[in-house]
Amino acid sequence: MAHSKPLEELFKSHPALRQTLWRGRDQYNDHACIPTGYPQLDKALPSGGWGIGCLTELLLEQHGIGEISLLLPALQQVTSNNQWAAFVNPPYLPYAPALANAGINLERLLIINTNSDDDTLWAAEQLLRAGIFESVVGWVNRTTAQKQRRLQLAAELGKTWATLYRPANAQNQHSPAALRIIVSASSHQMTLDIIKSRGGKQHTVHINPNQFDRSQGAEWPAMPAMSTNTVSTNKIPTNNTPTTPVIRAL
């Protein structure tokens, strides 16, 4: 967090002042957190990581820009401690080999498929309220501020790190979530716009994909050493000769 310089200098010269001076952000600073695994993001968040007992909203323009990779270091930490994490209503099949590559303990990752946003929110609330899940990640399309508040309260009650993915067009809606981040991709980097942060301030963080590419395999995305062959769809050179002779069943 960017501290105002003169105040910090004053604290250095008068250490006693630090205890006596009340600052608005202090009431959120003692929140427990899970480090995100990205130093620049940790710095930008008031609690120094994903807040436990807080609802985090990630607003997405599109899938496939590294939005889950953002959570993977924290999820890896949670599940490897044998704590439970849950994906509620993921948009696609969570692919076990990739998750295993990222070091996620798959036995501790519960995946729940639901049929409606209401069921998703209900299931997420149950999990948060139970207080036995360390992390709950959910995907919804439509929700209301009241429903979000229920989740935020459930997260506080269960002392759980709650994350909700919503479409980016929800950014203008009011939401009681403690942290709201717009996730977007721009030329070879991911941009996180923190539009709301309880106890912190608005901020923009850039994350280079190189920081998280290892989680889904060493080659993704384009490494500088990799030869990039740019071709259009219908002119891809096909390698038709199989490497080993294959007996085909009719």
Binding site: I68, Y92, L93, P94, Y95, Q216, E219, W220, T230, T233
Partner: peptide
């Protein structure tokens, strides 16, 4: 495993979008 995506589509989907192959 070698590089694998986190999300798998239940069924492969035919695409006509202009994509840039990187590997």
């Amino acid at each position: 495993w070698p590089a694998r995506p986190l999300w798998l589509l239940p069924e492969p989907k035919r695409t006509t979008e202009d994509l840039e192959l990187v590997t």
